[in-house]
Every structure is written in C-alpha cells, then in structure tokens.
Amino acid sequence: MGFKLLSKLLVYLTASIMAIASPLAFSVDSSGEYPTVSEIPVGEVRLYQIADGVWSHIATQSFDGAVYPSNGLIVRDGDELLLIDTAWGAKNTAALLAEIEKQIGLPVTRAVSTHFHDDRVGGVDVLRAAGVATYASPSTRRLAEVEGNEIPTHSLEGLSSSGDAVRFGPVELFYPGAAHSTDNLIVYVPSASVLYGGCAIYELSRTSAGNVADADLAEWPTSIERIQQHYPEAQFVIPGHGLPGGLDLLKHTTNVVKAHTNRSVVE
C-alpha cells in the first residue's frame, strides 16, 4: 500500500471513529477524501466538511520552486461564519470567499490569524475590503508590521502568557507558548472536538522541520505538551499544512522538532 493511500485511509478511519463516538456532533463529509496538494491548482481553494458547521479550507501556493498546501478553518456561528487564517495570499483568499459563498452561503463576518507569517495573514486586506472584521493577538499584529505583512485590524486580548485561553464565538483560542513562531495560536472547536494546530503542528508525513527561522526550538516541545494537557479530548487535529489526523500529530511534531534540534547540535 502506497504512503499517500495509507495517509488518506488514516484520515478516513479517524473521521469514521469520530462519527461513531459522537453521532450528534459529527456529520463528516462523505463526498470524498481530504484534498491534497496535487489536486488543488494554485489560485483555487477546496472546502472539506469535518463536522456539522465545521470545515477546513485548503489552498496551495508556490514557494521556492515548489507547491505547498495550506489549511485553515471555518466555523459556523449562528447565521454567520468565523474564518481562521487566510488562504495564503490575496488571490487565494478572494477564491476562498467565493467558494464559501458557493458552498455554504453564509457571510464571513470575523477572521482570526493564528500567527504573523504570510500563509496566515496574506489576504487580510481582501477580507477587510469584503467587510470582514480581522483579528490577531497584539504580538501577531506587531510582528506582521515588522515583517511588512498585512496586519489584522483588531487585537485579541488575554493571550499574552503561555497557557492563556479565551473564548471567541464558537471557538476557544489558546496560546501554548512559542513553537513554530513566538505568537502562534491554537484554535479548538469544543462542539466538535476539532483542534486546529496551525503551523505549530505537523502532518504525519512530514519528517523535516522546514521553516524554523522564527521558531523557538527549545520551547516548542513544552508548548505541545500544554496543548495535549489542555485538549486531551480532541479527536480531529488539523495541521497548518497537509493531512489531518488525531492527537498523534502532536507527538510526531515533537519528535521531528527534537530530531532537528539534535542534528543542529551535532553539526
């Protein structure tokens, strides 16, 4: 069995187990497998329904001669939608809004960016022009300005110390501490036991640490421990890039980060 097929099978099995364990909360999309990078042309966006009122959005972007996937989250909030992270750029984010209108038909009224990198804030200006209120932590807003990236308009308070959590509509926002970046936030959907790890969490097929220019490698494993301790009931975990899975993604990420750190020390 090929690795790609095995990865998709694991996603399907995880979703099936969740649907059985929580039949009222989960209505997993039966329309197909989780979209992969090879299936999404740059400039297009796919939506994948995880649970009743919960979707991931998947886009792709060219970077350094390669094409990478990027995940975000959409959560229903009454007759409105909360968006977590842009679709990595203005063109993708405009396509995301169009796809949401086509498939869901509810307005996106608020959006949260989970850290300051372009795959999370690139497209904020498109959201703002569409009347979406954009939010991020003060740290993310400051770092985005320093980096020359787009800056969300509103500040999220109460997320300055490791372990801080605040309720934001249908989700809980959690600051686990520094990891992929010093400002990275985690998003949890309690009604569906869905954990969105953003770039602080890796997919299972990833074996290298990737972009760690703004990471705190020493603190990252401790931050992941905080996530595990705060959300032990999480059933569906979405990484910032690639295929979702279960809580095993947290341990896998820790292993990859520690291996990278150990290699760096040896070198």
Rank of each mutant, 00 (worst) to 15 (best):
E33N: 10
H252N: 08
I74F: 04
A59R: 04
I17N: 10
T207R: 12
L47W: 02
E99V: 14
G32T: 09
V237G: 02
E203C: 07
V75T: 04
T86I: 06
V37N: 13
S56C: 15
A94D: 11
S205M: 08
P232S: 11
K258R: 13
G197E: 03
A136T: 06
G43F: 05
V112G: 03
V166P: 04
G78I: 08
W220L: 03
E157S: 11
R46E: 08
S30K: 15
A209E: 07
D77L: 02
V121I: 09
T86V: 01
W55N: 02
R110S: 10
I50C: 03
V108K: 00
R167T: 13
H260E: 14
G32I: 08
M1P: 05
G78W: 06
A21F: 13
V237P: 01
A130W: 09
L13C: 14
S162F: 12
G105I: 00
I20N: 13
V171S: 00
V126H: 08
A144G: 05
G245V: 02
S56V: 15
E44G: 14
L195K: 01
Q61S: 12
E233M: 11
P152I: 04
S30V: 13
W220T: 02
Y231K: 03
Y34F: 14
S22V: 11
L6A: 14
A213Y: 08
L47Y: 00
G240N: 03
A25S: 14
R206F: 11
I104E: 00
E99T: 14
G148Y: 06
P190Y: 08
S56E: 15
A192G: 10
G158R: 07
R110M: 08
N255D: 13
N71W: 00
R206A: 15
D85P: 00
T140A: 05
A130N: 15
Q103S: 14
D125L: 06
K4S: 10
E172K: 04
V42G: 10
G123D: 04
I238Y: 03
I186S: 03
A165W: 14
G43S: 06
A66N: 14
A90F: 06
Y48P: 05
K258H: 10
P41V: 09
Q228K: 13
L6P: 08
C199W: 04
L96V: 02
P176T: 02
S205A: 09
S16R: 15
I186T: 12
I40G: 06
Q235L: 09
L204E: 13
L82D: 01
I238E: 01
A51T: 10
A51V: 12
V237K: 01
M1L: 06
S264Q: 12
A200F: 04
I50Q: 04
E99Y: 06
T261G: 13
S31C: 07
L83E: 00
N92M: 00
D214L: 07
V256Q: 05
A136V: 04
E145V: 09
S113L: 05
A215C: 06
A90E: 13
S22Q: 13
A178V: 08
H260A: 14
G72W: 02
